[in-house]
Computed example of a mutant assay.
Amino acid sequence: METKTKTTVLHKAETRGDANHGWLQSKHSFSFANYYNPERMNFGVLRVLNDDTVAAGMGFGKHPHSDMEIISIPLEGDLKHMDSTGRSEIIKQGDVQVMSAGSGIQHSEMNANREKQVKFLQIWVMPNKGGVTPRYQQITLEEGARHNKLQQILSPNANDEGVWIHQDAWFHLGKLEKNTELEYQVKKAGNGVYAFVIEGNVTINGQSLNKRDGYGLWDIENIEITADSKAEVLLMEVPMNIK
């Protein structure tokens, strides 16, 4: 079921696009590859939110990107990243990685383990400037910093908490015990917030959400979050106007 009102959009987990390639199982919150839904092209500048599971020893071979901010958040297992700059990194659960494709880069993302699968969120954000020099950044997050609160993991500012991208966007993670109540203040007027429930059940501004549901809100100044069970949630604040 998908419902729309003037200032919200609800994407239930079971309504996402589904791709099963054997080695890769992917759920698409927005149109991607062979999944096309004209009502689900993006949420503002948030263009892709893929929930990927990659089989042991498998992965995405080298392929090109340009003018896109690509964020990877491992949920289970380890990813091996390689790119055309010669960089090779392992991205583990608890890390966050960003690659600004800019003027053009080729990369691969492989399951670093031959014994177990890897699960990760792949997120694409349209940048506010094109043709930038490609860049890569990876950090390890302090898990305690999101216990019953919102931990900033991404922003537009290189000197701020988390990784940074070429866009007026802020991402936060919260790992919440049941009955925890939090308020999130929108950082920039005109931005919207897309919430993605990684685990558990939460209520956001009166809307009940379950595991892997997505809920977008705009024309707001803040949102209220209540954990209806032990839960983990990702908030992605992004500009709604695509330039």
Rank of each mutant, 00 (worst) to 15 (best):
I165A: 12
S208A: 12
N179I: 05
D160S: 15
Y215S: 02
E183R: 15
K187G: 13
N159Y: 06
G216Y: 11
V186S: 10
E224D: 08
V186H: 13
K211P: 08
F196P: 00
A195Y: 07
N205A: 08
K187A: 15
A169Q: 00
Q167L: 06
N222E: 09
Q185P: 07
L176W: 05
G190R: 13
Q185T: 10
V193E: 02
Y215P: 05
E199K: 10
L217R: 04
L217E: 08
N210L: 05
E183I: 10
N179D: 09
N179V: 06
N205S: 12
V186M: 13
V202C: 04
T203Q: 11
D160F: 14
L217N: 04
W164R: 09
G206N: 09
V197N: 10
N201P: 01
V193Y: 02
D168N: 04
V197P: 13
I220M: 05
R212G: 05
E177Q: 09
H166P: 06
N201T: 05
Y184W: 07
V197E: 07
V193D: 03
W218R: 09
K175S: 15
V193L: 00
N210W: 02
E221I: 01
R212Q: 14
K178I: 04
H166L: 09
T203L: 01
N179Y: 03
E224V: 00
D213H: 00
A189C: 10
G162S: 11
I225V: 12
E161G: 02
S208G: 13
D168M: 02
G190K: 13
E199A: 10
H166Y: 14
I225W: 00
N205C: 07
H166T: 12
I225R: 01
E183W: 10
D219F: 11
I223A: 14
W218M: 07
W170A: 08
D168L: 03
E224P: 01
G192P: 05
I165C: 12
T180C: 13
T203M: 04
W170F: 15
W164P: 04
D213S: 00
N222G: 03
V163I: 15
S208C: 08
T226S: 02
N222K: 15
E177H: 07
G162R: 13
G192S: 08
N210T: 04
G174S: 14
I204V: 15
T203Y: 02
N159W: 06
K188F: 14
V202P: 04
K187P: 12
T180P: 05
K175I: 11
L209A: 05
K187H: 15
Q207C: 03
F196S: 02
H172N: 13
G162M: 10
D168A: 02
F171W: 08
G192Q: 09
A195G: 04
G206P: 12
E183T: 15
F196K: 02
N201L: 01
K211S: 11
F171R: 06
G206R: 08
K175E: 14
N159V: 09
V186N: 11
K187Y: 13
H172D: 14
T203C: 00
E224S: 07
E177T: 11
G214L: 01
K187V: 13
